[in-house]
Amino acid sequence: MILMNYIAAFFLIVLGLYTIVTKYNLVKTVIGLSIMDYGVNLLIVSIGFNPGGTAPIFTFSELNPSSFFVDPIPQALTLTSIVIGACVTAMSLSLVMKIYEQYGTMDTREVRRLRG
């Protein structure tokens, strides 16, 4: 079952890259970025899964050698990654807004004053 997670994560990453590369609309590029980011988040979470482990919430008293938890570190990493994904999306959307204001178009093929 864990294999499905990895396949889904990989699929999401490839889908994200596909949208960034082929779509000529700025907003779609941003969407592609966030899809890719979510794919990686899924990958991070599913790595920390130990079959049969419980949520790693405990008090010192409950801690005994027999208790078996899911690995907590990837979850922490996922949290930061989600935050970062949100920031990236926020900043890129604000940039897209300003570009539309200045260039008057959403098409990436027009937004190419700097080239060569």
């Binding site: 890719m36 980011d37 990686v40 890129s92 897209v96 300003k98 260039y103 700097l114």
Partner: peptide
């Protein structure tokens, strides 16, 4: 071209960062 440069940098930059994240994981 400042906005355009920033956007392009952000897109490819975050592709790079995502690669680093995936590699770390």
């Amino acid at each position: 071209g400042a906005l355009e440069a920033a956007f392009k940098y952000l897109v490819v930059g975050s592709i790079g960062s995502t690669c680093i994240l995936a590699g770390t994981i």
